[in-house]
Design a protein around this nucleic acid. Structure first.
Lengths: 243, 243
DNA sequence: CCCGGATGGTCAGCTCGGCGACAGTGCCGT
DNA sequence: ACGGCACTGTCGCCGAGCTGACCATCCGGG
């Protein structure tokens, strides 16, 4: 998906389309992203229910979306364009829990469970989000069973990913962890994150990560660039991950 | 909750109660456990919907419930009594992903996502489960929105736990990881797992874990027993976890 | 065009934890 | 009572990865 074009469209919409039309298009987009591949399809009335509740929100690079320092604004955020970093400040420096890409959802768990988010979200570039207030989210789930069903798939998907991440971290050599992370975070064969961030995602020191990456480059599995990594041999990386 | 008494009751029920009465009692129990504390209450018809779908299943110690070696039986399992170990065999020996206690649910994710479970489940002692077949689970969610809503909370709860686990593992010293694990797995101030298993849950070697545990014991934070650990100072352990 | 900040690459020293082995000890069935 | 088994406690060696430092390179803005 061409993110630049999406963003441009969003900007144009603000001027050329009615607010209602924009909302419906955004709602349909959410319907495609949340609970992808779930059995239950959403009806037109479900999409309409979504549309009348979402409001767009823009953030500039390095702005905080929620969490410590941003007033802990409750509600559901769906990333429309851009990237968002979920991080925790620990005694041993910053740890990155995850990176949100367009289509990813955050903020629903705290609402569902009534607990605060343990991390804070920072815009890694200019970001456009769609926002659902806590009450809107609650009524959406209550009145639209199909949406609740899809949301269930979405959360289940994230849980499966988290489990996979746990397995790939538990006592495995760093090369295997790195190979797994690159495969998970790649977008069209490229990972557009600085090594500093990747290291924080694995909770390791940057020099250690760099050593491993150079090793993978020597084995022609990846190509290192400035702020980006190209995956050259996915199957080879998978072998390293499972070794 | 006194697990011994529950098990005894279950045995007695098989003889003294009709199958239907047992099912309704089990269903009510599931209703209490799944999505604990969720906003949406279940109506009597929801509990009835659960009751007519569940079937009990017993497993002896060391028996495999599902996963590699047990035919990968699809369906949802709810632990009624006993403990179940979720483990993965890796190149570097066994890794324990988690331990299921009474009230815990497993097997729903593969159904929701259409993917196989990446781990296998082994009964750590004699275990009684309640079973939902894939088709029954699907129809339950489709026809009982309140159950789907509760199930959403249940999955969200597990996702939050998994996130917490990730944060507590990422590049933290072993003492902090151990303190966190003990706090998570304790039941009434006691962890009834052999050190071998605890080590597998953190993906570390047993001698390393033992060294840390003895250290915690010297600091009067825990008391080590045979196959069990008593937590003496929860606040102290929390301090160690966050250090 | 140049400069400052961010990112990538590398090194030496050191600590933590893995690995394997072995002894002591509680638990349980015979 | 006894013996086997599983669990705990401990040691020594060694390699993986952390610490902190330093310089090269890339990029965007003035």
């Amino acid at each position: 998906m061409d993110l630049g074009r999406w963003t441009a469209l969003l900007r144009a919409d603000a001027a050329n389309l009615t607010s209602r039309e924009t909302q419906i298009r955004d709602a349909a987009w959410i319907a495609r992203c949340v609970g992808r591949g779930a059995a239950a399809p959403l009806g037109p009335q479900d999409v309409a229910g979504l549309a009348e509740r979402i409001t767009p929100a823009e953030f500039r690079k390095d702005e905080l979306l929620f969490g410590a320092g941003a007033g802990d604004r409750p509600g559901v955020w769906i990333v429309r364009s851009g990237h968002v970093e979920l991080g925790v400040a620990t005694s041993r420096g910053r740890v990155v829990v995850g990176v949100l890409r367009p289509g990813d959802v955050e903020g629903d768990l705290p609402l569902l469970l009534g607990i605060p988010v343990p991390y804070s979200a920072r815009a890694m570039d200019d970001v456009v989000c769609l926002y659902l207030s806590p009450t809107d989210f609650e009524s959406l789930l209550a009145r639209h069973p199909a949406v609740a069903r899809r949301w269930l798939s979405s959360v289940a998907q994230r849980l499966a990913t988290s489990h996979g991440r746990l397995i790939s971290l538990l006592g495995r050599p760093l090369v295997a962890q790195v190979a797994g992370l690159l495969l998970d975070e790649s977008d069209q064969g490229t990972v557009r994150l600085p090594q500093r961030t990747l290291a924080a995602m694995l909770g390791v020191a940057r020099p250690s990560l760099n050593k491993v990456l150079k090793d993978l480059e020597r084995r022609s599995l990846v190509a290192l660039g400035y702020g980006s990594i190209q995956l050259l041999d996915d199957d080879g990386l998978r072998r390293v991950r499972n070794a």
